[in-house]
Simulated assay, not measured.
Amino acid sequence: MSTQATEAPVTVFMLVKTTRAWLDKTPEERMHALTTEIVPVIEAKTTGVRSRFFDTEFYSTRVTDVWLWEARDHQAYQLLIDALRETPFWDHYFEVVDLLVGVENGYARTYGFDTVTTINT
């Protein structure tokens, strides 16, 4: 058994649906909006946050994208959400359908177990 003393990073699966305002933009306009309207606000108001993006629109009509956010702690996550809400991301370009917030291997951390993972290559 191993016990980690540091706070576990927060992982958030942000399920979103694109709005007409986003879809009416060209791909170039979308990239411009991300890099000029959204990312600078996140970078100015947060630290210890990173993101990854997954397209799901070809498999789901309720959720078109999943944004995976990893924050070093709960305060960094809260600052991220506050920053996003101050941009057109929130409820203009995207409808936030759900937030699934978790701590990776939280059960193992709570009880001092080694984590169990699978790798099959």
Rank of each mutant, 00 (worst) to 15 (best):
G112W: 02
L15C: 12
V49K: 00
Q78S: 12
L68P: 04
I119A: 15
L99K: 11
Q75I: 07
T3G: 14
T19C: 04
L84T: 04
I38K: 01
P88F: 05
P40I: 02
G48C: 01
D91I: 12
T35L: 06
V16T: 11
V39Y: 10
P88M: 06
R52F: 10
F13W: 08
L80N: 00
Y77L: 05
K17G: 06
N120I: 15
L100H: 14
K17M: 07
L15W: 02
T87P: 04
T46S: 00
L79S: 12
A21K: 10
I42T: 01
V97W: 03
Y111S: 04
V116P: 00
T47C: 00
T46M: 00
V63Y: 01
D114M: 08
D82W: 06
T47H: 05
T36D: 06
G106C: 00
P9D: 06
M14Q: 10
E28H: 08
I81H: 00
R20T: 13
V63T: 09
F53T: 11
V101M: 06
L100M: 13
H92R: 15
T118I: 14
L84Y: 05
E95K: 14
T121Q: 14
T64S: 11
H92D: 15
P27Q: 02
N105Q: 12
K45R: 10
A71C: 09
F94L: 07
A5L: 15
I119R: 15
A21N: 09
Y59E: 13
P9E: 06
F54Q: 05
T121P: 15
E104C: 05
D82E: 12
I119P: 11
L100C: 10
W69H: 11
D98C: 09
L84W: 06
V97F: 04
V96S: 03
T117P: 07
Q78E: 15
R109Q: 03
T6M: 13
I38V: 10
F53E: 12
Y93E: 00
E95Y: 13
V116A: 10
A83L: 06
Y59L: 14
P40K: 05
T87D: 05
A108Y: 04
D114Y: 08
L80E: 01
M31H: 10
T19Y: 03
R20A: 12
D114R: 11
S60D: 05
L34S: 07
E28M: 10
G106N: 02
V12K: 04
V63W: 01
R85I: 05
F54I: 10
T118V: 13
A108C: 06
